[in-house]
Structure formats: C-alpha cells, structure tokens
C-alpha cells in the first residue's frame, strides 16, 4: 500500500542551522492498517507526514503509494488518494465559506473543477445524511459559515470532509491536540468510526501514549528523525505506557525528558 524507503529530509542544507529532520526512514504499510505515530517535539513526525503528502519534497529516498511512485509529485496531484487532517481546526476548513460549500469542495477532492453548479440538491441531501451521523446538529446548519462553528464542530466537519471521497491513505497530525478533553474524546470516537472501522489506511500522530496504544493496529515511535520503535498488534498487547517509556530509553539511549510525550 504505502512503501517508504531510505527517506531523508534535510532542512537548510549546508547552512549553520542545518537540520536532518528525517534519516533513513523505511516503512511499509499494508492496506487497512491504522498506525499511531509518537515521538517528542521535533522528532520529525510532521515532516514525515508532509513528505508523504507532498508538501515537502524529500532529499533522498522514494515513496510509493499503491505501487505508484509519488516521491516528487506536487501535493495537489496526490490529493485524489491522500486526505489530511491538521492539528488546528482552522486549517482543515475554509472559515468564510458555509458548511455545505466546504463539503462540496471536499466532495471533489482530486477532481478537475468545472464550470458547473458547485452544489446540487442531491448532494445537499447526501451532506444532510452524513452530517446527521455526526450527531452535532450540523445537518440543520448547512448554510452557516464555518467560522461560526466551535473548534470541535469544525474538526468533526474536517473528518467528514476527509472521508467524503474514500481516500487510499489518511494522514492525521495531532488532530485532537487543540481541543478540550471532552471534545477531543468525541473527535477520537469519530476517528474510529470514520477511519478505523472503515479500514482506511491511516497514519495518526498523537502525543497521548494511552491513545497511541489503544487505537489502531500498530505503533511507531520516532526519535531524531529515525523510527526507533515499531510494534504491531500482537506485540502491542500487554504494552503499557510505562513499558513504552522503558522501550524508548533502551532504543534511544536517552532519558525521556519530554513532558508532552508523557502526558497521557
């Protein structure tokens, strides 16, 4: 499904502030796998997702999606198969546009934009049905500008938008981190129903170790641009946050100083 080999990304190459953000990343995802990604600040998690999405072009290595090489494809040309959810709910929706306008934009992910009416009555009905399933009452607010919604509502809408056209691969970057605990839980539940239960191949970055252990089928840990831990479902059973920290020490040879990573 997704095959990354020998991937390097270096920022500010040859300058004093040169930063090797990713080094020799090798990763293979099978179709339908749901992988949680953890690691401290600056470990390279977002950079990895950005390379896969095409926002950054890697300096070395290749990325294949479904057998097709996409290493140097511009981001907007990968959008047909890859969807993204961002940490900031503002990034996932267009604030000045209405709920239905946002959904209509997402319904044509990866398609050519034509000179025909953007929203048909039939699509409006589809939007209402799908929104009703979120149980946030958004089905009655199709023509509300998204900027009037709460952060949680916007993030839920972003999740729905991402799955409106079934993606081959979903990239979620700390998409619950800026929400209050209760809302974060709701959005996490939605993530389960919309991505995990639908067997959409997913990479989900999180800073919550509990969450990383409970969700999905596999866990990887990044440290200084390298994958230092990769545990699949069988091995994950019986793994606790404490054990995970121990494993981190063993793999990185360092004490874990990052409080954020420890936050459960």
């Amino acid at each position: 499904m997704l095959h990354i080999s020998n991937l390097y990304k270096i920022f500010n190459y040859g300058e004093v502030n040169e930063k090797i953000a990713l080094q020799n990343i090798n990763l293979r995802l099978a179709a339908g796998e749901f992988v949680t990604v953890i690691g401290g600040n600056g470990a390279g998690k977002s950079t990895l997702l950005n390379c896969i999405a095409g926002v950054y072009i890697p300096d070395q290595g290749t990325i294949h999606l479904d057998g097709r090489e996409i290493t140097r494809l511009p981001d907007y040309q990968r959008a047909a198969s890859i969807c993204r959810i961002f940490q900031d709910p503002m990034t996932g929706t267009a604030a000045s546009m209405t709920v239905e306008e946002n959904l209509a934009l997402a319904l044509r992910r990866g398609m050519k934009r034509r000179l025909v009416r953007a929203i048909t009555e039939k699509e409006r009905k589809l939007f209402r049905d799908k929104l009703a399933r979120l149980e946030l009452g958004l089905e009655y607010r199709l023509t509300t500008p998204v900027k009037l919604l709460s952060g949680g509502q916007r993030q839920a809408l972003a999740l729905l938008m991402a799955t409106l056209v079934r993606p081959k691969l979903a990239l979620l970057d700390e998409h619950t981190a800026s929400l209050d605990p209760k809302t974060a839980l709701r959005v996490l539940e939605l993530t389960r129903t919309l991505f995990e239960k639908e067997n959409i191949t997913t990479l989900m970055i999180t800073h919550n170790m509990e969450q990383a252990l409970r969700m999905g089928t596999r866990l990887i840990m990044l440290h200084e641009g390298k994958i230092i831990l990769d545990v699949n479902d069988g091995e994950r059973e019986g793994l606790t946050v404490a054990k995970l920290i121990e494993l981190f020490h063993a793999a990185s040879g360092e004490k874990l100083q990052n409080d954020r990573l420890l936050l459960a």
Binding site: A53, D75, Y76, Q77, A79, A80, C83, R84, F86, M90, T91, G92, T93, A94, A95, S96, M97, E101, A104, L105, A106, R108, R109, G110, M111, R113, R114, L115, V116, R117, A118
Partner: peptide, 22 residues
C-alpha cells in the same frame, strides 16, 4: 460553480485547497 468555489477557497484557506487537490 465548482471552479468559482475553488477560487473562493484558495483565498480563504490555501493549505486546505491544495490538500483537496486544487
């Protein structure tokens, strides 16, 4: 139209529109 909406979206949230293939 679809094209016009993509234009509006570009002015509103360029990152998102690119991630939607525009």
């Amino acid at each position: 139209t679809e094209l016009g909406q993509a234009l509006r979206g570009t002015g509103d949230n360029e990152v998102m529109l690119r991630s939607l293939g525009v």
